[in-house]
Simulated assay, not measured.
Amino acid sequence: MIRLTLTLSSVYLAVVGLALLFVPLQFGVGAVPADASTELIALLRLLGGPFLGIAVLNWLSRGTPFVGSLRKILIANAVGFGVVALNDVWGVATGEARESARLFLGVHLGFTLAFLIFLRLSGR
């Protein structure tokens, strides 16, 4: 199951990273104005790089034994997805987020829970 979770999170993060790089206005619809400044577009594209880096890290970690460095990767993913899920919860609860935040909340919360479960299992 951990291999599947790392694979799915890798694909998800790669899609987000590529969308930020190549179609930031379309990806940010409802959050990014159609007449966004070139500086905002550049910032969105900049954020695509780390998403792709984490996607590659997760992809390459799929066969790593359930000890040592994999534990660190699980912690990093749990923190990353957890912070994003908390942001989604805030946005949905306050009404400040766009409609798609409800869908993303489920995705981010699911990944957070999966990584926390695997982290707990890796400690045994």
Rank of each mutant, 00 (worst) to 15 (best):
S61T: 15
K72A: 08
A85M: 09
F118Y: 15
L4N: 06
G82P: 11
T38V: 15
Q26D: 08
A85F: 14
R120F: 15
L86I: 01
N87D: 14
I41D: 04
S9I: 01
I54F: 14
Q26Y: 10
V29P: 00
G82D: 11
F104H: 07
R3N: 08
S100W: 12
T7N: 13
F115Q: 05
I117L: 13
A101K: 02
W59F: 15
H108E: 15
S37E: 04
V29C: 00
L21Q: 12
R71S: 06
F111W: 03
F104M: 07
N58K: 00
S100G: 04
L4T: 08
L6N: 03
D35W: 03
R124L: 13
L105Y: 10
V29F: 11
P50G: 03
P50W: 04
G68S: 11
L40P: 11
R3G: 05
N77W: 07
P24H: 02
L60N: 02
I54S: 06
L40K: 06
S9A: 04
V89H: 10
L44H: 04
V56P: 02
R124F: 02
T94Y: 13
G95A: 09
G80D: 05
V29E: 15
L21Y: 08
R98C: 04
L70N: 06
A76T: 05
V83Y: 12
A55V: 01
R71D: 00
G82T: 01
T5M: 13
E96H: 14
P33R: 11
L6T: 05
R98W: 07
V23Q: 10
N87T: 12
L4W: 11
P24I: 01
V107H: 06
L119D: 03
I117K: 13
L57F: 03
V83G: 02
R71C: 03
F66M: 11
A101V: 00
V32E: 09
L70K: 14
S37R: 07
V16F: 01
D35G: 10
A93W: 14
D35Q: 12
T94R: 13
L119Q: 06
G30V: 02
V79H: 09
F22V: 09
L119S: 05
L25V: 09
Q26T: 14
S100N: 09
A78P: 00
W90A: 15
S37M: 06
L43S: 09
R102A: 08
I117G: 00
A97S: 15
L44C: 08
L109P: 00
F118M: 12
M1C: 05
L40E: 09
G49N: 01
A101C: 05
G123D: 07
R3Q: 13
K72R: 14
F81E: 10
D35H: 06
L25F: 08
V92Y: 07
L40I: 12
G68I: 06
F81P: 06
F22R: 01
N77A: 10
Q26F: 12
I75H: 07
T112F: 11
A76M: 09
A36F: 04
L121K: 15
V32N: 04
L105S: 08
V15H: 05
A93Q: 09
